[in-house]
Design a protein around this nucleic acid. Sequence first.
DNA 1: TACTATATGGACCGTCAGTCAACTTGTCGA
DNA 2: TCGACAAGTTGACTGACGGTCCATATAGTA
Lengths: 183, 183
Amino acid sequence: MERADAARNRRAILRATEELLETNDLAQVSMDRVAAAAGVGKGTVFHRFGNREGLMRALVEERVRALSDAVASGPPPLGPGAPAASRLAAFFDAVVELATRNVKVMAAFEQASTDRLNNPIYLSWHAHVTSLITSAAPTLDADLIAHLLLGSLHSDLMLHLLRTGETHRLTTGLRSMIETLLR
Amino acid sequence: MERADAARNRRAILRATEELLETNDLAQVSMDRVAAAAGVGKGTVFHRFGNREGLMRALVEERVRALSDAVASGPPPLGPGAPAASRLAAFFDAVVELATRNVKVMAAFEQASTDRLNNPIYLSWHAHVTSLITSAAPTLDADLIAHLLLGSLHSDLMLHLLRTGETHRLTTGLRSMIETLLR
DNA sequence: TACTATATGGACCGTCAGTCAACTTGTCGA
DNA sequence: TCGACAAGTTGACTGACGGTCCATATAGTA
């Protein structure tokens, strides 16, 4: 069990990081500043989250949990039950929306991450997408196509599209792309 | 004009960077080490290339020039003359091959780069791909699809595929993807 | 209350990209 | 040939970073 003060600090650090990321440039959000903003010592931040990547991952995991649950056990078409093609479309709708709402946090995690393709979140998304593609169109190289489709969530592109308020193009573009590929 | 000693040092620095990138982990290739390996002072490296990004960009530009020329004025299907769909396929074959041969350098540039989507190389590739898609299939969101296809060149994915020696899957996967999309 | 596993904080460390002012050298016109 | 000067060189220095460490403090427990 985590001690009460530890839990309190964990929350304070996560909230402080969130806020710094929303109001500052990514490069300005150092671990020192996070600690200062959370009102704790720097050592506490590292003790709690291991390193910068761990902190950012924790933040991402918070925001991603609802989607993971919905995919694993929620109602169709996101959850089990619907045809693979519909589930795939629904998943990308949801994941693009998630990435849109949390670009800053996703970008911070991406930048702090040592191997994007091997972190648990990406791995689970990739496995999900691969399996849906395989069901819907067994002749395709599902593993590769999953990588290419998930590449659209890259923070570079998301930020670029957000700057001009065009994220709906990503949603509709991906939808039609998926439809075309699975036909 | 660049003085003779300056030109000599420029070459020495570029060759040293290349070699360090091939034989070391990306994180180990600091500007200090580059300077030492090239046998010049650190100040010289910065004087010549401005900053880390400038150095890596110069390295990438060297390797990319041949492709740019071939696209602009070489023989079809890469150069002008062939149908857009063939040019697109040929371009991705070439660019994947280029990225495969130069993963390390591309990764270093990507990492040093502040805005991936706004550097001159990416911009020119994106413009080229967008225009070909527009010619071949005017109803598509060419700009967006160009981004998604070019996303496959991300060093993360390239390194992942290279590790298991499966870059041919990228070539064939992209080819069939392009074919499907343009149909 | 007394004990201890857990948590805390911030000085400290090594490293990095980037700067700068004193110094050296290639180039070129006279 | 040579002197002048623009151009190039250098490495000590700066400030900031992520991460460590341990003396100190405290929450939970019996």
